[in-house]
Nucleic acid binder design. Structure first.
Length: 470
DNA sequence: ATGTTC
């Protein structure tokens, strides 16, 4: 039986679930039916005391009792921490998730960005400040998922005149797909860092090296396009340039770190009611909290290295210089100093899960979709948003719904209209699954100002086995 | 987002 099914029954992950699985397997071997085993479990959950001395179920009963005692110890806080929401018509469930997060004892303040949608624990587009605690699921599954843009010293016309060359470089120098990695390992100084900072990262080093410089799957991409600079504060005079934009994260290693520490956090907080279990935190004074923080920071450097290599290999293959370089995390936690409502300052942990850092003057990238614009922005330093902005257009349709209701034909018309060449992607990533990026930008004019606009032209994403027609 | 499930 899976952990998820057990949790649904009221058996939490950890010692209870492990023992329950053992008991079920034993009952199965003895010829008991699944239903009979389930009935017995329900009965033990209802009154563990009655089974404490039972030879077969005693251990499970004592684990469950300990859990139930701890769970009773949870006392909800008097009032929810203050939060603000940007944008209209956000999924009610995503708002509920933010409210839940703000009801944690460690929460200080929250904010929801206009691209928000439901995620594990904290919604995507959620920002949460806590005191002295880090929440693995408020950082996100893809730790340090980030954006990077470089402006290449090539004329914009190269998109037409050197199209075949750009396509071939994009295909040759990138690596997409779940579990995907390079046969010939790439090199970066992040692999000289100490990966033994935690037992988890120590075990992950080989996989990380294999995947170093790769892009992964889902909404990750590498694309060429045009950058229209409207404000020279971006670092280039006004005008139109050829740019390379990438979206990638910490790949399998980050996912494994997230899985490990979110499970650990949950185990350490059996008192949390089910509605808050995915928001279990790690105290930064504890070994577990410090381990997660070190692992997260290493994943930050690793994700940055992935992007650095993508851009470096492509620029090298094209034999061109880089004229501008912009990047930012959008799934991460930072130690920051923020003001209390009374104006005094305190150190908080700010989690941005699908949110772009937008402190005053901070430059970041907010992508749209494969056929809609993205923007290079400069933060306005809004304290109400906890110095944050949206990280993209935000999904309006689930992946399942997209695959069920959309067709490539619908997408191709839009791609042609926008002069976008799609090398590969899943049907669940076509522009129609995303909200209107310009509406999202309009909803956060108080958070960021636009310095430049990026329009994708040659797009590469993870293939889904269903090649787009040309 | 990831990659494999005792």
């Amino acid at each position: 039986m899976k952990n998820r099914a057990l949790v649904a029954m009221g058996i939490p992950a950890g010692p209870c679930a492990e023992e329950a699985k053992r008991v079920i397997a034993e009952a199965h071997a003895a010829g008991s039916t699944v239903r009979a085993a389930g009935d017995t479990l329900q009965s033990i959950i209802a009154s563990p005391d009655a089974y404490l001395d039972d030879a077969r179920y005693g251990v499970l009963a004592s684990h469950l009792k300990a859990h139930q005692v701890a769970a009773k110890a949870f006392t909800p806080r008097q009032s929810v921490a203050p939060y603000r929401i940007w944008g209209e018509h956000l999924e009610p469930d995503s708002v509920r998730q933010l409210q839940n997060a703000c009801s944690l004892p460690v929460a200080v303040a929250g904010a929801l960005m206009p691209d928000a949608h439901v995620g594990y624990g904290l919604p995507i587009g959620g920002v949460l400040a806590t005191e002295h605690a880090v929440i693995p699921y408020a950082v996100g599954v893809d730790i340090a998922c980030r954006m990077k843009m470089t402006v290449l010293d090539l004329p914009v016309e190269a998109l037409e005149t050197q199209r075949e060359r750009l396509v071939s470089v994009l295909e040759r120098e990138t690596c997409f797909g779940i579990g995907g990695g390079f046969r010939v390992k790439r090199q970066h100084e992040v692999m000289d860092a100490d990966w033994r900072v935690t037992p988890v990262t120590a075990d992950l080093k080989d996989r990380a090296w294999k995947q170093l410089g790769s892009s992964g799957s889902g909404n990750h991409f590498v694309e060429f396009g045009t950058l229209s600079v409207s404000d020279d504060a971006v670092g280039l005079p006004r005008g139109t340039y050829l740019a390379l934009l990438s979206h990638s994260g910490s790949r399998g290693s980050g996912a494994a770190v997230a899985a490990h520490y979110s499970t650990l956090a949950r185990r350490l907080h059996p008192e949390l009611p089910q509605s808050l279990a995915e928001l279990a935190w790690l105290d930064l004074d504890t070994e577990a909290g410090q381990e997660y923080w070190e692992a997260m920071e290493l994943m930050g450097r690793y994700a940055a290295a992935n992007h650095a290599l993508i851009h470096q290999y492509i620029a090298r293959a094209l034999n061109v210089e880089v004229r501008l370089d912009v990047e930012n995390h959008h799934n991460f936690a930072w130690r920051e100093t923020h003001q209390r409502p009374d104006g005094t300052e305190r150190e908080v942990i700010v989690h941005r899960k699908g949110a772009t850092p937008a402190g005053e003057g901070v430059v970041g990238i907010i992508p749209g979709s494969m056929a809609t614009p993205g923007y290079v922005v400069r933060g306005k330093g809004s304290t109400a948003s906890l110095l944050s902005a949206a990280h993209g257009a935000g999904r309006r349709m689930s992946r399942t719904q997209a695959r069920k209701t959309l067709s490539w034909q619908d997408a191709q018309a839009l791609l042609r209209e926008r002069q976008v060449t799609l090398l590969s992607a899943g049907l669940d990533e076509v522009p129609m699954v995303y909200k209107d990026i310009d509406e999202v930008m309009a909803a956060q004019q108080d958070l960021v100002e636009v310095l430049a606009r990026f329009d994708p032209r040659l797009v590469k994403m993870a293939p889904s086995g269903e090649p787009p027609e040309d």
